[in-house]
Nucleic acid binder design. Structure first.
Lengths: 146, 146
DNA sequence: GCAGATTGCGCAATCT
DNA sequence: TAGATTGCGCAATCTG
Protein backbone atom coordinates (compact mmCIF):
# COMPACT_ATOMS: atom_id res chain seq x y z
CA UNK A 1 0.00 0.00 0.00
CA UNK A 2 2.96 2.22 -0.36
CA UNK A 3 4.52 2.11 -3.79
CA UNK A 4 1.98 1.67 -6.56
CA UNK A 5 4.90 1.03 -8.77
CA UNK A 6 3.93 -0.15 -12.19
CA UNK A 7 1.25 -2.71 -12.36
CA UNK A 8 -0.38 -4.40 -15.26
CA UNK A 9 -4.09 -3.95 -15.86
CA UNK A 10 -4.85 -7.45 -14.84
CA UNK A 11 -3.37 -10.12 -16.98
CA UNK A 12 -1.61 -10.00 -20.25
CA UNK A 13 1.80 -11.06 -19.28
CA UNK A 14 4.59 -13.07 -20.86
CA UNK A 15 2.35 -13.79 -23.77
CA UNK A 16 -0.83 -14.58 -21.97
CA UNK A 17 -4.06 -12.78 -22.46
CA UNK A 18 -7.27 -13.00 -20.63
CA UNK A 19 -10.11 -14.23 -22.66
CA UNK A 20 -13.25 -13.84 -20.74
CA UNK A 21 -16.41 -11.90 -20.69
CA UNK A 22 -19.03 -12.82 -23.12
CA UNK A 23 -17.94 -16.42 -22.87
CA UNK A 24 -20.71 -18.64 -21.71
CA UNK A 25 -18.74 -18.28 -18.58
CA UNK A 26 -20.58 -19.08 -15.59
CA UNK A 27 -18.54 -16.65 -13.61
CA UNK A 28 -15.00 -15.54 -13.93
CA UNK A 29 -11.91 -17.68 -14.34
CA UNK A 30 -10.12 -15.64 -16.91
CA UNK A 31 -9.23 -18.72 -18.80
CA UNK A 32 -5.66 -18.05 -19.63
CA UNK A 33 -4.71 -18.63 -23.20
CA UNK A 34 -1.11 -18.78 -24.33
CA UNK A 35 -0.55 -16.43 -27.21
CA UNK A 36 2.45 -18.39 -28.27
CA UNK A 37 2.62 -22.17 -28.03
CA UNK A 38 5.52 -22.35 -25.65
CA UNK A 39 8.65 -20.47 -24.74
CA UNK A 40 8.13 -17.33 -26.71
CA UNK A 41 11.39 -15.82 -25.70
CA UNK A 42 11.47 -15.48 -21.94
CA UNK A 43 12.99 -18.21 -19.90
CA UNK A 44 11.08 -19.07 -16.80
CA UNK A 45 13.07 -19.14 -13.59
CA UNK A 46 10.91 -21.78 -11.97
CA UNK A 47 11.22 -25.29 -13.26
CA UNK A 48 7.53 -25.99 -13.52
CA UNK A 49 6.34 -24.38 -16.73
CA UNK A 50 2.78 -25.16 -15.86
CA UNK A 51 1.16 -22.08 -14.51
CA UNK A 52 -2.40 -23.12 -15.09
CA UNK A 53 -2.87 -25.47 -12.25
CA UNK A 54 -5.38 -23.87 -9.92
CA UNK A 55 -6.88 -27.27 -9.23
CA UNK A 56 -10.16 -26.21 -7.79
CA UNK A 57 -10.43 -29.48 -5.98
CA UNK A 58 -7.20 -29.03 -4.16
CA UNK A 59 -7.71 -28.36 -0.51
CA UNK A 60 -4.70 -26.16 -0.77
CA UNK A 61 -6.47 -24.07 -3.35
CA UNK A 62 -9.62 -23.69 -1.29
CA UNK A 63 -7.62 -22.74 1.73
CA UNK A 64 -5.79 -20.06 -0.13
CA UNK A 65 -8.98 -18.74 -1.67
CA UNK A 66 -10.67 -18.58 1.66
CA UNK A 67 -7.77 -16.79 3.25
CA UNK A 68 -7.61 -14.37 0.39
CA UNK A 69 -11.31 -13.70 0.56
CA UNK A 70 -10.85 -12.84 4.18
CA UNK A 71 -7.93 -10.58 3.45
CA UNK A 72 -9.91 -8.88 0.73
CA UNK A 73 -12.78 -8.24 3.04
CA UNK A 74 -10.47 -6.85 5.66
CA UNK A 75 -8.68 -4.64 3.21
CA UNK A 76 -11.91 -3.25 1.86
CA UNK A 77 -13.21 -2.52 5.31
CA UNK A 78 -10.08 -0.60 6.10
CA UNK A 79 -10.29 1.28 2.88
CA UNK A 80 -13.85 2.25 3.60
CA UNK A 81 -13.00 3.27 7.12
CA UNK A 82 -10.16 5.42 5.91
CA UNK A 83 -12.42 7.19 3.47
CA UNK A 84 -14.87 7.89 6.24
CA UNK A 85 -12.14 9.21 8.48
CA UNK A 86 -10.92 11.48 5.75
CA UNK A 87 -14.39 12.84 5.26
CA UNK A 88 -14.69 13.51 8.95
CA UNK A 89 -11.33 15.22 8.93
CA UNK A 90 -12.69 17.57 6.33
CA UNK A 91 -15.60 18.44 8.55
CA UNK A 92 -13.37 19.05 11.52
CA UNK A 93 -11.03 21.23 9.54
CA UNK A 94 -13.95 23.21 8.21
CA UNK A 95 -15.14 23.91 11.73
CA UNK A 96 -11.69 24.84 12.85
CA UNK A 97 -11.49 27.19 9.93
CA UNK A 98 -14.65 28.93 10.91
CA UNK A 99 -13.40 29.37 14.43
CA UNK A 100 -10.20 30.89 13.19
CA UNK A 101 -11.99 33.22 10.82
CA UNK A 102 -14.22 34.40 13.63
CA UNK A 103 -11.22 35.06 15.78
CA UNK A 104 -9.59 37.04 13.02
CA UNK A 105 -12.69 39.09 12.65
CA UNK A 106 -12.70 39.83 16.34
CA UNK A 107 -9.06 40.77 16.50
CA UNK A 108 -9.44 42.96 13.47
CA UNK A 109 -12.27 44.82 15.09
CA UNK A 110 -10.33 45.28 18.27
CA UNK A 111 -7.40 46.63 16.34
CA UNK A 112 -9.61 48.97 14.44
CA UNK A 113 -11.05 50.37 17.64
CA UNK A 114 -7.68 50.90 19.18
CA UNK A 115 -6.38 52.62 16.12
CA UNK A 116 -9.32 54.97 16.06
CA UNK A 117 -8.71 55.80 19.69
CA UNK A 118 -5.17 56.59 18.86
CA UNK A 119 -6.08 58.87 16.04
CA UNK A 120 -8.64 60.69 18.11
CA UNK A 121 -6.19 61.16 20.87
CA UNK A 122 -3.59 62.43 18.51
CA UNK A 123 -6.03 64.98 17.20
CA UNK A 124 -6.95 66.07 20.67
CA UNK A 125 -3.33 66.61 21.44
CA UNK A 126 -2.87 68.59 18.30
CA UNK A 127 -5.82 70.74 19.14
CA UNK A 128 -5.04 71.34 22.78
CA UNK A 129 -1.33 71.66 22.68
CA UNK A 130 0.07 74.90 21.39
CA UNK A 131 2.64 74.09 18.76
CA UNK A 132 6.07 75.75 19.21
CA UNK A 133 4.59 78.74 17.40
CA UNK A 134 6.77 78.57 14.37
CA UNK A 135 3.97 79.74 12.15
CA UNK A 136 0.34 80.67 12.11
CA UNK A 137 -1.67 78.90 14.78
CA UNK A 138 -4.03 77.85 12.05
CA UNK A 139 -7.80 78.14 12.09
CA UNK A 140 -8.97 78.29 15.70
CA UNK A 141 -11.16 75.29 15.66
CA UNK A 142 -11.61 73.45 18.88
CA UNK A 143 -13.98 71.01 20.54
CA UNK A 144 -15.45 68.18 18.59
CA UNK A 145 -15.15 67.87 14.87
CA UNK A 146 -11.82 66.29 14.35
CA UNK B 1 -24.90 5.09 -2.18
CA UNK B 2 -27.09 6.79 0.28
CA UNK B 3 -29.32 4.44 2.16
CA UNK B 4 -27.66 1.16 3.00
CA UNK B 5 -31.01 0.04 4.12
CA UNK B 6 -31.28 -3.65 4.60
CA UNK B 7 -29.82 -5.78 1.93
CA UNK B 8 -29.39 -9.47 1.67
CA UNK B 9 -25.93 -10.99 1.81
CA UNK B 10 -26.12 -11.98 -1.80
CA UNK B 11 -28.62 -14.63 -2.76
CA UNK B 12 -30.95 -16.76 -0.80
CA UNK B 13 -34.30 -15.52 -1.82
CA UNK B 14 -37.79 -16.86 -2.38
CA UNK B 15 -36.50 -20.33 -1.82
CA UNK B 16 -33.34 -20.14 -3.80
CA UNK B 17 -29.93 -20.64 -2.35
CA UNK B 18 -26.56 -20.07 -3.79
CA UNK B 19 -24.37 -23.07 -3.97
CA UNK B 20 -20.93 -21.95 -4.71
CA UNK B 21 -17.45 -22.02 -3.42
CA UNK B 22 -15.72 -25.25 -2.93
CA UNK B 23 -17.75 -26.86 -5.65
CA UNK B 24 -15.60 -28.85 -7.98
CA UNK B 25 -16.67 -26.80 -10.95
CA UNK B 26 -14.09 -24.94 -12.87
CA UNK B 27 -16.30 -21.96 -12.77
CA UNK B 28 -18.67 -21.24 -10.06
CA UNK B 29 -21.77 -19.73 -11.31
CA UNK B 30 -23.76 -19.32 -8.18
CA UNK B 31 -25.85 -22.01 -9.65
CA UNK B 32 -29.24 -21.14 -8.36
CA UNK B 33 -31.02 -24.11 -6.97
CA UNK B 34 -34.71 -24.01 -6.19
CA UNK B 35 -35.29 -25.22 -2.70
CA UNK B 36 -38.87 -25.96 -3.54
CA UNK B 37 -39.98 -27.26 -6.90
CA UNK B 38 -42.28 -24.41 -7.73
CA UNK B 39 -44.52 -21.87 -6.10
CA UNK B 40 -43.58 -22.34 -2.51
CA UNK B 41 -46.13 -19.98 -1.17
CA UNK B 42 -45.44 -16.51 -2.46
CA UNK B 43 -47.32 -15.32 -5.46
CA UNK B 44 -45.14 -13.68 -8.00
CA UNK B 45 -46.38 -10.45 -9.48
CA UNK B 46 -44.88 -11.14 -12.89
CA UNK B 47 -46.47 -13.85 -14.92
CA UNK B 48 -43.29 -15.77 -15.58
CA UNK B 49 -42.69 -17.86 -12.49
CA UNK B 50 -39.26 -18.76 -13.75
CA UNK B 51 -36.77 -16.62 -11.92
CA UNK B 52 -33.80 -18.77 -12.66
CA UNK B 53 -33.39 -17.90 -16.25
CA UNK B 54 -30.12 -16.06 -16.53
CA UNK B 55 -29.57 -17.88 -19.79
CA UNK B 56 -25.95 -17.12 -20.29
CA UNK B 57 -26.37 -17.61 -23.96
CA UNK B 58 -29.10 -15.07 -24.26
CA UNK B 59 -27.98 -11.99 -26.08
CA UNK B 60 -30.21 -10.08 -23.77
CA UNK B 61 -28.29 -11.38 -20.81
CA UNK B 62 -24.93 -10.55 -22.26
CA UNK B 63 -26.09 -7.10 -23.12
CA UNK B 64 -27.29 -6.46 -19.64
CA UNK B 65 -24.13 -7.83 -18.14
CA UNK B 66 -21.98 -5.71 -20.34
CA UNK B 67 -23.95 -2.60 -19.55
CA UNK B 68 -23.78 -3.36 -15.88
CA UNK B 69 -20.07 -3.98 -16.03
CA UNK B 70 -19.71 -0.61 -17.60
CA UNK B 71 -21.86 1.02 -14.97
CA UNK B 72 -19.87 -0.68 -12.27
CA UNK B 73 -16.61 0.53 -13.67
CA UNK B 74 -17.97 4.04 -13.94
CA UNK B 75 -19.32 4.01 -10.43
CA UNK B 76 -16.05 2.78 -9.03
CA UNK B 77 -14.09 5.38 -10.88
CA UNK B 78 -16.29 8.07 -9.46
CA UNK B 79 -16.00 6.67 -6.01
CA UNK B 80 -12.25 6.65 -6.28
CA UNK B 81 -12.20 10.15 -7.67
CA UNK B 82 -14.36 11.37 -4.85
CA UNK B 83 -12.06 9.86 -2.28
CA UNK B 84 -9.13 11.56 -3.92
CA UNK B 85 -10.94 14.86 -3.99
CA UNK B 86 -11.77 14.54 -0.33
CA UNK B 87 -8.16 13.87 0.49
CA UNK B 88 -7.11 16.91 -1.46
CA UNK B 89 -9.72 18.97 0.31
CA UNK B 90 -8.09 17.97 3.56
CA UNK B 91 -4.77 19.24 2.33
CA UNK B 92 -6.24 22.51 1.17
CA UNK B 93 -8.05 23.05 4.42
CA UNK B 94 -4.89 22.33 6.33
CA UNK B 95 -3.04 24.97 4.37
CA UNK B 96 -5.83 27.44 4.82
CA UNK B 97 -5.72 26.74 8.52
CA UNK B 98 -2.06 27.53 8.72
CA UNK B 99 -2.59 30.79 6.89
CA UNK B 100 -5.33 31.76 9.28
CA UNK B 101 -3.28 30.86 12.30
CA UNK B 102 -0.42 32.96 11.01
CA UNK B 103 -2.74 35.88 10.49
CA UNK B 104 -4.06 35.53 13.99
CA UNK B 105 -0.56 35.55 15.34
CA UNK B 106 0.19 38.72 13.43
CA UNK B 107 -2.94 40.51 14.50
CA UNK B 108 -2.36 39.51 18.08
CA UNK B 109 1.10 40.95 17.98
CA UNK B 110 -0.14 44.17 16.47
CA UNK B 111 -2.78 44.48 19.12
CA UNK B 112 -0.28 43.84 21.82
CA UNK B 113 1.97 46.59 20.54
CA UNK B 114 -0.84 49.08 20.32
CA UNK B 115 -2.01 48.27 23.80
CA UNK B 116 1.45 48.75 25.17
CA UNK B 117 1.67 52.11 23.46
CA UNK B 118 -1.61 53.06 25.03
CA UNK B 119 -0.52 52.14 28.47
CA UNK B 120 2.75 53.90 28.12
CA UNK B 121 1.02 57.01 26.93
CA UNK B 122 -1.43 56.84 29.77
CA UNK B 123 1.44 56.67 32.21
CA UNK B 124 3.12 59.59 30.62
CA UNK B 125 -0.03 61.61 30.98
CA UNK B 126 -0.39 60.58 34.58
CA UNK B 127 3.19 61.62 35.25
CA UNK B 128 3.12 64.93 33.45
CA UNK B 129 -0.34 66.19 34.14
CA UNK B 130 -1.22 67.34 37.60
CA UNK B 131 -4.51 65.76 38.58
CA UNK B 132 -7.19 68.18 39.94
CA UNK B 133 -5.79 67.43 43.35
CA UNK B 134 -8.92 65.93 44.74
CA UNK B 135 -6.99 63.32 46.63
CA UNK B 136 -3.64 61.86 47.09
CA UNK B 137 -1.65 61.78 43.84
CA UNK B 138 -1.16 58.15 44.54
CA UNK B 139 2.12 56.34 44.81
CA UNK B 140 4.69 58.28 42.85
CA UNK B 141 5.72 55.52 40.57
CA UNK B 142 6.99 56.52 37.19
CA UNK B 143 9.21 55.25 34.44
CA UNK B 144 8.83 52.01 32.59
CA UNK B 145 7.08 49.00 33.98
CA UNK B 146 3.46 49.65 33.10
C1' DG C 1 9.04 -18.69 -2.02
C1' DC C 2 5.16 -17.86 0.92
C1' DA C 3 1.34 -15.32 3.22
C1' DG C 4 -1.13 -11.36 3.76
C1' DA C 5 -2.53 -6.92 1.43
C1' DT C 6 -4.14 -4.51 -2.75
C1' DT C 7 -6.44 -3.93 -6.82
C1' DG C 8 -9.13 -4.61 -11.16
C1' DC C 9 -12.88 -7.16 -12.69
C1' DG C 10 -17.28 -9.55 -13.39
C1' DC C 11 -21.69 -11.26 -11.23
C1' DA C 12 -25.98 -10.64 -8.97
C1' DA C 13 -28.99 -8.31 -5.78
C1' DT C 14 -30.69 -3.90 -4.79
C1' DC C 15 -31.52 0.77 -4.99
C1' DT C 16 -33.05 4.86 -7.62
C1' DT D 1 -36.86 -0.50 -17.68
C1' DA D 2 -32.21 1.19 -17.19
C1' DG D 3 -28.40 2.91 -14.81
C1' DA D 4 -26.05 3.27 -10.11
C1' DT D 5 -24.45 0.95 -5.89
C1' DT D 6 -22.69 -2.52 -3.20
C1' DG D 7 -21.17 -7.10 -1.25
C1' DC D 8 -18.67 -10.86 -2.82
C1' DG D 9 -15.35 -14.07 -4.87
C1' DC D 10 -11.41 -14.74 -8.23
C1' DA D 11 -6.88 -13.93 -9.89
C1' DA D 12 -2.86 -11.06 -10.57
C1' DT D 13 0.26 -8.37 -8.14
C1' DC D 14 2.60 -6.10 -4.58
C1' DT D 15 4.97 -6.29 -0.16
C1' DG D 16 7.68 -7.85 3.54
Amino acid sequence: MSKPSQQKPHADQNGVSVIQAQTSGLQQVPQLVPVSPAGGGKAMPPSKSKKSNPDKDSDEYRMRRERNNLAVKKSRMRSKQKAQDTQQRVNELKEENERLEAKIKLLSKELSVLKDLFLEHAHNLADNVQPPSTEAPGPAQNGSGH
